[in-house]
């Protein structure tokens, strides 16, 4: 029989992996509603941003994914952000999850994400459109 992965509760997370991505974490939406992180839908983010006075949702399209030069545990993800298609690169742990529009949580290494966080996750790919935030009235 296949061995079950160790439960993430109580396990030490990598320092750059926030605790709120662990399956079962309670997330408060802008309207006060509480949901588990694994139950969040695209609409939850959109509706929360609509309520927010200072944040707005932006579309960030994955343009490139490559391994980090500093560590095999990290990946560099390049996004094209918003209507200006500004290029933004972020260096994240390969298991760091991003929320893809209409799809849900995705990471560069979904197997590690599931192992560490138990968060259902698909493979992040070039062309995926992720949810990101910017400030309203950014000038």
């Amino acid at each position: 029989a296949p061995s079950a992965p160790p439960p993430p509760s109580g396990a030490a997370l990598p320092p750059s992996l926030p605790p709120y991505f662990v399956k079962g974490s309670i997330i408060q939406l802008a309207n006060g509603e509480l949901k588990r992180v694994e139950d969040l839908k695209t609409e939850d983010f959109i509706q929360s941003a609509e309520i927010s006075s200072d944040l707005k949702i932006d579309s960030s399209t994955v343009e490139r994914i490559e391994g980090s030069r500093t560590s095999p545990d990290f990946a560099v993800v390049q996004f094209s952000v918003g209507e200006h298609r500004s290029q933004v690169s972020v260096e994240v742990l390969v298991e760091y999850p991003f929320f893809v529009f209409g799809q849900g949580w995705s990471s560069c290494c979904p197997d590690r994400t599931t192992q560490l966080l138990e968060l259902p996750c698909t493979k992040l790919s070039v062309g995926d459109v992720c949810i990101s935030l910017t400030l309203k009235n950014l000038k």
Binding site: Y20, Q28, L55, S60, G82, S132, T134
Partner: peptide, 25 residues
């Protein structure tokens, strides 16, 4: 007796990367 521990509640926006695009104009 085990005292109930408070469950942390995280705001929705902490889950979303804050990618502020650079404004060229």
């Amino acid at each position: 007796n085990v005292e109930p521990r408070s469950v942390p509640v995280f705001p929705w926006h902490s889950l979303v990367p804050f990618l502020a695009p650079t404004q060229s104009d």
